[in-house]
Amino acid sequence: MTSSYVVAGQEIRAILREKTFILLLVIFIGMTLASTYIGWSSAHTIQSVYDATVSLLMQQGSPIPPPPFAGASHLSLLKNMVIYVVLIGALLAITVGYLMGIRDRRAAVTRIIFSRNITKQQFLGGKVLAMFFALGSILLAAAVVSTVSSMLLSQITFTDLVRIASFYGFSLVYLAGFAFLGLSFALTRKTSTLALVIPIIIWVAITFVLPELTSALYPTASLNPTSLQTDVMPSPVLNAIHRAVYPLSISEQFKIVTERILLLPHQPVVTSGLNYPFWLGYVAVPIWTIACLITSLFAIGRLNPSQAELNE
């Protein structure tokens, strides 16, 4: 176990020296701060737009519908964070995993490392510890930024604080999967480019392609924090795809769970026949992370220390 701690300590020190990691971290924290402001500004504007609409309808003598956003949660200010975790957070996690997996291979030190008294499992354990430490620290910092900025712009109760903490906790589980993915490919691929690009392609498939297949959502519509009502019921083909693939659409499952945590309005996909239970996401996301961890275990098992060096 001590060997794992040594590896973890070394990884944490190394990642803090990586400029790309720092750049992505700054973007993520910056967008966390911006997301509260964007949420507040949008909420403020939509109220003014509603008032202007009411005034126009009154002048024209038309009936006035109730405000469609009445009863919105205080935490709706953070609705953009759901998207930023899916976009920036996932790429940050891939980068963390990739950098932790590729560094020793680039420095051509894998042979030296395994000539010491350390097993592959201890080596991986150290990397996993460091990964959780790095991602946990980032999300903790984001949680603090979200809480403080929300407190400044809205009234936050103790329950809201618990919800913010739960949101970031669940985000850690989701992001850990991408970090394991980055680590797995960084440990096994022959070139560093392939090791970085394959997890990014998988991320694109999870974030954009699967939601389109399962819920008929256009790729760019997946970036809208206000979930759209989609209807696949009249199409037998889309219904069949939805039934088969929906549990695997991890980014959608993550969004559903976090929308529930933050009390954001959610529009379920209209389907015929089988309707998946609301708790599916609570199970699907951890299973995804565990599956990616198992991939990392296979990757470290396949790693041949004497041939792991990258000659680029």
């Binding site: 519908p65 206000t226 979930s227 009502q229």
Partner: peptide
């Protein structure tokens, strides 16, 4: 991804599922 997303998110019509103006008829 980020710049188009920010612009899209700030659109008042995108604040309500199904569109704000649609919901107001």
């Amino acid at each position: 991804l980020i710049l188009p997303q920010v612009g899209d998110t700030m659109d008042p019509d995108n604040q309500v599922p199904g569109g704000f103006f649609n919901s107001m008829h």
